[in-house]
Design a protein around this nucleic acid. Structure first.
Lengths: 168, 168
DNA sequence: TTAAATACGGAGAGTCCCTCCGTTTATCAA
DNA sequence: TTGATAAACGGAGGGACTCTCCGTATTTAA
């Protein structure tokens, strides 16, 4: 779809033209720009959920959480230029993307709960905030190596949440 | 300034009117919206720098870093609705806010370097990424308690960077 | 005082968003 | 098959915003 090239800032007129649709038709199917974006990426977010389930089965808790966060970083990578959309996905002020957002919340919560239950991790923030921090990083720093930075941030976050690391 | 009420989305027409300026005059002084925003907040960012210097003198390294990060969270708080601007401030893709951005970079680098030199902290990411993560959090989660979440994130980050916490 | 330089102001062109409604296409009962 | 009803389409147009351009006003300095 046109989003891929133009980012989420592509004008809807443009998108409609690229899809050989009248602008009116586009609006009927996707009343808001966000509805359109969510539709475009629903598959990917679902995959993210499935992978989480698999990771939970095959990896020890913290490992699974870490792996999934790294995947999430890649996932973010596929949305370069669509940062606004991402924001909403992980629970922006508006309740757009409620569906995908809720799913993301559920998935990360599951992984985190497992890790907490194992006693290896101590968490006192909303698990979604982890995703928010990562998404924020991507949103802001679109430099060539943001992804590397994000991966390191994952490690820092994991380490920072590890039991026994919070002396203060 | 009108930003305070309308956020950074206030139309420039509106701003000009509020300031009893012609739109043309506004544009001559501030060629871009970002130039205007930077001008508005230059003072605050400078203060942030001064406080950093003071903290460095009066607190042990890690403590100073932590305090300053918490201040940064508050600073972010004053910019609710101006998230885009903030993004650029901590080094977005475009080189807007080069001045303030460079200053922020210098300040955080100084604090981090001190902490690393003390051996208490081990850092393998760009110090600015810490700010990016925090700013990202604020940008995305405009919920009522984002600030609390951000503060906790500061602790997690500090803990995660602490030497001896990175077993992996 | 007057001419050059500087600063101002706003009309207007371009772009985008989104709605509204006339037109086309599909559905289905007779 | 036909005609009527329903559903989907398409794009003109109003409103909002950004930014430029240039005529006008004000300051500076000779």
């Amino acid at each position: 779809m046109a989003f891929a090239e133009k980012g989420s800032n592509a004008s809807l007129d443009e998108i409609a033209r690229a899809a050989s649709l009248g602008i009116g038709t586009l609006y009927r199917h996707f009343p808001t720009r966000d509805a359109l974006i969510e539709a475009v990426y629903r598959n990917e977010t679902e995959q993210l959920g499935e992978v989480a389930a698999r990771l939970a089965e095959t990896h020890p808790p913290v490992e699974a959480l870490r792996e999934w966060l790294l995947l999430f970083v890649d996932y973010i990578g596929t949305k370069q230029g669509m940062s606004e959309a991402l924001n909403s996905l992980v629970g922006g002020p508006s309740d757009l993307y409620a569906a995908s957002g809720a799913q993301a919340k559920q998935v990360i919560a599951m992984l985190v709960d497992r890790a907490v239950a194992s006693g290896e991790i101590q968490l006192d923030i909303d698990p979604l905030d982890l995703l928010r921090a990562l998404a924020g990083l991507a949103h802001i720093s679109a430099g060539p190596n943001w992804k590397q930075a994000a991966r390191r941030l994952v490690d820092i976050l994991i380490a920072g949440m590890s039991a026994g690391c919070r002396e203060r």
